[in-house]
Each structure stands twice: as C-alpha cells, then as structure tokens.
Design a protein around this nucleic acid. Structure first.
Lengths: 111, 111
DNA sequence: CACTCTCTCAACCGTATGGTTGACAATCCT
DNA sequence: AGGATTGTCAACCATACGGTTGAGAGAGTG
C-alpha cells in the first residue's frame, strides 16, 4: 500500500463517509464480513454500483478484501476512522461542555 | 433553515470535511471569526474559490455569516461535527481497546 | 458623487461521482 | 466439459466538484 500524506488519507476517509450508501455498507459490515452480492441486496442498486462503492471504501482503507477465489468476502477495517475522529475531536471544545465530556467518558469507559 | 434528515446532514458534514482547503478554513476560524478576504490569503486561490468553499461549509452548518454589511465575518459553528463524531464513535469498538479509551478520557477531561 | 474595497453571481472548463448496461473473467457445481 | 454464479472492467451519461475569469452589487470613504 502506498503511504499517503495524512491530509490525503483524511480526504479519502471523509469522502468515503460522505455517502449514505457507503455508510450503510459499513454498518452491514460491522455485523461481520459479507460478499458483494450479499451487500448489494438491501439497496435498490446494481451489484456493479455497490462494487464501485466498495472500491471507494477500500481506497480509504475502510474495507479489505479477503480471499482470491469466487467467494471474496469484504471485511470492515475501521482503523482509518480513528484519524477522522481525532481530527474532529480537535474541535470538540467548540461544542462540548463538561456534561458532554462526562457523557463521552461514560460511553468510552462503559463496558 | 430547512430541517434536513439526519443522513442528509451527515452527507453534507462529511462532504464538507473531505477537503483539506475547507478543513484549513475551519482551522483558521477556530482562532476566531474572519472575513472572506482574510481567509483566502494563505491559500493560493482566488477569493472566489474560497467563497464557494465557505458556501459548502455554510450548507453543512459549520460556518455562519455575521452582519449584512461590507464586513461580513465568518464564524465557526462546530456543532454539526458532534453528529459526525457520534456516527464514527459507533465504530470505535472496532479499533479501540481499553488503552485508547483511557486516552480519550484523558483528552476529553484534560482541561 | 465618485471611487475603492469586499464579496457574490454567472458562465465556463476539466475532471470526478454515482449510477446504468453490457461484456468478460473466474470460480463453483453438476 | 458445460453451465450457473459472482464480481470486475469498460463505456456511457447526467450531474456535481473545484477551480478560473469577468461582471456587478453594496458598503464604506475621498
């Protein structure tokens, strides 16, 4: 994989997330790996369109393909989201107050 | 302002963030309100291009214009970032472990 | 009033997005 | 081997992005 500048990677991650179909795909993949066909089902779109969305997600590093064969499963890799969230977190003080920070603590330490 | 569906708003916010020039504009506005002219300076672009970027940010609710006059200042409104971060946070368990959660706590409670 | 400064509107251009259809490669199952 | 299933490649299309230039509107200032 080519090493990208941080800004390039942020561009790609935010762009990948800026589409509800792709967010839905990530939501589905959060429940476990799936094949392209399976992913395309719920959306009223062609398998082809889903394949292109998956390539956008793959380019952003959010999805990885497994296996070389017929049954190529797609697997979620949420790691790049961390940098996106970290960027946003730099602005948290502009909307968050102490109660929000407490809520964040409860959420992150909750289990 | 028109009430948008949550997905529409997320589309717009993530799209607004998916561009380094716009992220840089937000970074500048984090230091305080500024006029369009002032914002355009550091980037090697026309004031016109910056104006269009600001409209994207405004459409996402991340920037608000103040004043009707000659000196229209732009002000950061980071609130929509909260929903974007909340969406990402739903995937935090896929990359975060307890140490990361501790770090998040330290960061959010740090000041 | 005339002029300057600031900003937006409008048109344009090249490229990218998001979708389609159709063809094709590759794998699995008889 | 033959055929069904799965997925990508390629071409196409309409629209949106990201930038430019040029014109023009509005507020301040001589």
């Amino acid at each position: 994989m080519v090493q990208l500048a941080a800004d390039d990677r942020l561009d790609e991650v935010f762009h990948a997330l800026a589409n509800r179909t792709r967010r839905a795909l990530l939501g589905r993949l959060a429940a476990g790996p799936a094949r392209v066909n399976e992913l395309a089902e719920p959306h009223g779109m062609s398998v082809n369109a889903i394949s292109k969305h998956l390539m956008v997600l793959e380019r952003a590093g959010l999805v990885q393909r497994e296996g070389t064969g017929h049954v190529r499963a797609c697997r979620l890799d949420a790691a790049p989201m961390a940098s996106a969230e970290a960027w946003i977190a730099g602005y948290r003080r502009f909307w968050s107050d102490k109660i929000d920070r407490l809520a964040a603590f409860v959420e992150t330490a909750g289990d």
